[in-house]
Amino acid sequence: MIPKTLHIIWVGDESKRPDNCIDTWRVHNPDWELRIWGNAELMSYGWYNADHIRAMSGRELNGVADIMRWEILFREGGFVVDADSICRRPLEPWLFDCEACACWENEIIRPGLIAAGYVASEAQNPFFRQLILDLKEKPTVIDRMAWQSVGPLYLTEAHRKYHYIDLTVWPSHFFIPQHYSGIRYSGKGPVFADQEWGSTRRNYDELHTRSVA
């Protein structure tokens, strides 16, 4: 089963870590363990793809988080959520009644693209093991943008390549009700979180100071 552990990754300038956003996950889900992966864990955990992490750290920290994400899911299991996300309601047990799950980025603007910011899995999942192994074989991960080489597109292409049919993919509005393009879900389905698109909008300098309640 998927452990009731929430993982949030924040590497780089920890003075700008959006604890206001992170706290919303703690408040709405008190029965979940919350683990924050920061600079100390980045340096000490013993990452299988440490070489790629070092290369990516000089370019896109969101790409560093993606590489870490796949190893955390495989080794620890649980639910990895973006640091710049705001939880709006408690997570429901039925969301995790599977071996792994994620959500679409947006069915209209980005049809078929699986988001990397909200992914859950049992530990030792062979699909996420394969993601890690495939990254190891890449001569470089900085030949393209991080979302392509290690993030959502990488996840989506692997999902198709390996025909991983046991990945439950939830509607985007569960966790990304508003896309960075501006299109917003207005239906009556459940919305568990909002996404602030910190890397895309480059708003990390002020996000941590904002009221998000």
Score class of each variant (00 low, 15 high):
E92Y: 03
L91G: 07
L113E: 13
D66Q: 09
V80N: 10
R54G: 00
R89N: 01
G78V: 04
L113W: 06
S85Q: 00
I108E: 15
R88L: 11
W94V: 05
A120C: 11
I108D: 15
I72C: 11
L73A: 06
I86P: 14
N62M: 00
R88S: 00
N106R: 14
E71Y: 07
G63D: 02
R75L: 04
W70T: 07
P93N: 06
G78F: 00
W104E: 15
W94R: 03
A83K: 04
E76F: 08
W94F: 04
F96P: 15
I86F: 10
R89M: 09
A65E: 12
E76C: 15
C98H: 01
E99M: 04
E60K: 13
R88V: 05
E92Q: 02
A100P: 10
G77T: 13
S85H: 03
L91Q: 07
W70D: 12
I53R: 01
W104R: 14
P90M: 10
G63A: 10
A55S: 11
C87W: 00
F96Q: 12
S85Y: 07
C87F: 02
M68H: 05
W104G: 10
R89F: 04
E105D: 15
A100S: 15
R69D: 03
L61D: 10
G63H: 09
N106M: 05
C101Y: 08
C103F: 12
W94N: 02
N106K: 14
V81R: 02
G77W: 08
S121P: 02
G77A: 10
E99I: 09
G77I: 15
L73S: 08
M68K: 08
